[in-house]
Structure formats: structure tokens, C-alpha cells
């Protein structure tokens, strides 16, 4: 009896397992197909950017045949941009500004997150809530009053003003991720270090930063994305080509009056997207891992 029962049970279990397996397989394929559809929809604009960047002005305006295909592909647009001194300057400025902004943002937010997650002081709780709320006051409200401040410190039309302003866009989110991450580090670790006589900065440097590396990378990537793509502040505060950054530079340089050089604009758009794409490609896993730990615990 027991043998047959066991056999039946095994059979049922196997069947269930089999159907489960089949179900899983279906779910898997379904997921792939659904993802494929989404990827297709998401990539239509970038694809069109690529296609247009390979066309000459004449082909774009001729409108013969499908706009989704290139009939006479040319790299002239890319070549023009790469050898165009203004574009090189924008690129360099963007890289410089972004590196500085990321550095400034990370220093500020790591220090603040460490303090807010581990050291209480009067108002620290309000501050850790309040930091996130700075997003309630967006750049579109701030750029007019900021004219005076930026003017007073003499940074109108100087990309250093972006190094001061962009961190306001990145720091609150980065601080929030880092608070989450630091809070997930067991308190015993730093208590032990404290008892051993380590200073706070030593604890931060030796214990927190190495342990929280994924979180730091996630925050860095966020800061990078924000400062690479910001538009309103450079539009408002920069106006000469030697100070300009990519986002505004491309638009102000390649659109002349009511003349759009679409091929070049699209090529520039691709070239400008290159650094973030490369960075995401390499650091994606850290990004997800960092967010996983930082944003969800805490």
C-alpha cells in the first residue's frame, strides 16, 4: 500500500513538477516576447536618430522612399562634428563639468549620509527627510532668482557655475541612496572600530566606503546621468561657445535661425549619448546592486 501510494505521490509530484516546469517555460518565453516588444518600442527613437545621422541634408529633404531607411549612407555628419572645434569644446566642457559635479556630489552626499545615518545631532532627522524635499523646488523655479546669485559670484557664462548648481540636482537623491546603504551596515562594525579608537573619518574611509561601494557606484551613476543631461541651467547661464556644454551647445550651434541641420543634430545626439551608454554598459550590474541594497533597505 505504502509503495503504491508513494509511487502515486511521486507521479503526482512529477506531474506537478512537469506542469510547473512547463508553466515556467511559458512564463519565460512570454517574458522574452513581452520584453522584446517593449525594447522595440523604446528603441524606435534612438534607431531613427541613428538612421537620420547617416543621411545627407539633401536626402533628408528629398523625402523619397521610406524615412526609416538610409539610401546613401554617409559619415559626413560625424566627421564634420568630430573635426568641428566648437563641438570638441562642448564635449570637453561636458566631460569636465560632469567629472567635477560627480566628485563634488559624491563627497557631499557620502559625508552627509554617513553623518545622518550614524551620528545624531540637533535637527539631523529633519535634515534627512528635508534633503529629499529639496526636489520640491525645481530648477524651473530657481533659475530666475539664481541669476543674481550667479551674477554676484561672477560666474555668469562660466561653466563653473554648473559645478555649483548641478549638485543641487544630484545630491538629494545620492544622499538618500547612501543613507539607505549606510543604515544597512551592521552597527557592531563601527562600534567595534570606535572602541578600538578609530576616528569617524577613519571609520568612514576604512569601513563604510569599501562596504558601500555598490551604493556609491549607483549614486555616482545617477549624478553622472543628471549632470550630463541637464538642460535648463546651461541654457540660462552660458552663452559663449568656449563655455558651453553639449546639451545646449548642440541645439544652439546646429540649429541656425529656423534652419535645422537634422543629420548633424542626430549625429551629435548619438555622440553625446556615447559616454552614458558606455558607462551604463559597464557599471549596470553595480547600479542595480547598489540600488537594491541602498534604496530598499534603510
Amino acid at each position: 500500500m505504502s509503495a503504491s501510494a508513494t509511487a502515486r505521490r511521486v507521479a503526482v509530484a512529477a506531474e506537478r513538477k512537469h506542469s510547473l516546469h512547463r508553466q515556467r517555460l511559458w512564463a519565460l518565453w512570454g517574458s522574452y516576447i513581452a520584453l522584446g516588444v517593449f525594447v522595440f518600442m523604446f528603441l524606435v527613437p534612438p534607431f531613427y536618430t541613428l538612421i537620420t545621422s547617416l543621411k545627407s541634408s539633401a536626402e533628408i529633404s528629398a523625402q523619397t522612399g521610406s524615412p526609416w531607411l538610409v539610401h546613401h549612407p554617409t559619415l559626413d555628419n560625424f566627421w564634420y562634428l568630430i573635426t568641428y572645434p566648437n563641438f570638441q569644446t562642448y564635449y570637453l566642457n561636458s566631460v569636465l563639468v560632469t567629472i567635477l559635479v560627480v566628485a563634488v556630489s559624491m563627497v557631499i552626499s557620502v559625508l552627509a549620509a554617513f553623518s545622518l545615518s550614524r551620528m545624531g545631532f540637533w535637527g539631523s532627522q529633519t535634515l534627512s527627510t528635508g534633503v529629499f524635499l529639496t526636489y520640491l523646488i525645481p530648477p524651473s523655479l530657481l533659475f530666475i532668482p539664481l541669476f543674481q546669485i550667479i551674477g554676484a559670484i561672477g560666474l555668469i557664462n562660466n561653466f563653473w557655475c554648473l559645478v555649483l548648481l548641478y549638485p543641487t540636482l544630484a545630491v538629494p537623491f545620492c544622499t538618500w541612496i547612501m543613507i539607505g546603504y549606510f543604515s544597512s551596515i551592521p552597527k557592531e562594525l563601527d562600534e567595534a572600530a570606535l572602541i578600538d579608537g578609530a576616528g569617524y573619518l577613519q571609520i568612514l574611509w576604512r569601513i563604510f566606503i569599501p562596504v558601500a561601494m555598490p551604493g556609491i557606484i549607483a549614486a555616482t551613476i545617477f549624478a553622472f546621468t543628471v549632470s550630463w543631461g541637464a538642460f535648463l541651467y546651461p541654457l540660462a547661464y552660458l552663452y559663449t561657445s568656449n563655455q558651453m556644454v553639449l546639451t545646449v551647445g548642440i541645439i544652439s550651434d546646429l540649429i541656425r535661425g529656423d534652419v535645422f541641420q537634422w543629420g548633424k543634430i542626430m549625429a551629435a545626439c548619438l555622440l553625446a549619448s556615447l559616454p552614458p551608454i558606455v558607462i551604463y554598459a559597464f557599471l549596470m550590474d553595480y547600479y542595480v546592486a547598489g540600488l537594491t541594497a541602498g534604496a530598499t533597505k534603510g
Binding site: F147, G151, L235, Y237, Y239, V248, S252, I255, R256
Partner: peptide, 24 residues
């Protein structure tokens, strides 16, 4: 000499910036 584009109302923004900051 600076050449300031009118694309995206950039020139008007610059004028506003200079008027507010009283420098430029």
C-alpha cells in the same frame, strides 16, 4: 565679441540674466 543664438530664446534668457545680475 560673443554671438548669441535666438534658438530656444537663448538670447532673451541671456538678456534676462544680465538684467537680473546687472553684469555682463
Amino acid at each position: 565679441v560673443d554671438f548669441i543664438t535666438s534658438v530656444g530664446q537663448k538670447n532673451i534668457l541671456t538678456i534676462a540674466a544680465e538684467a537680473q545680475a546687472k553684469t555682463g
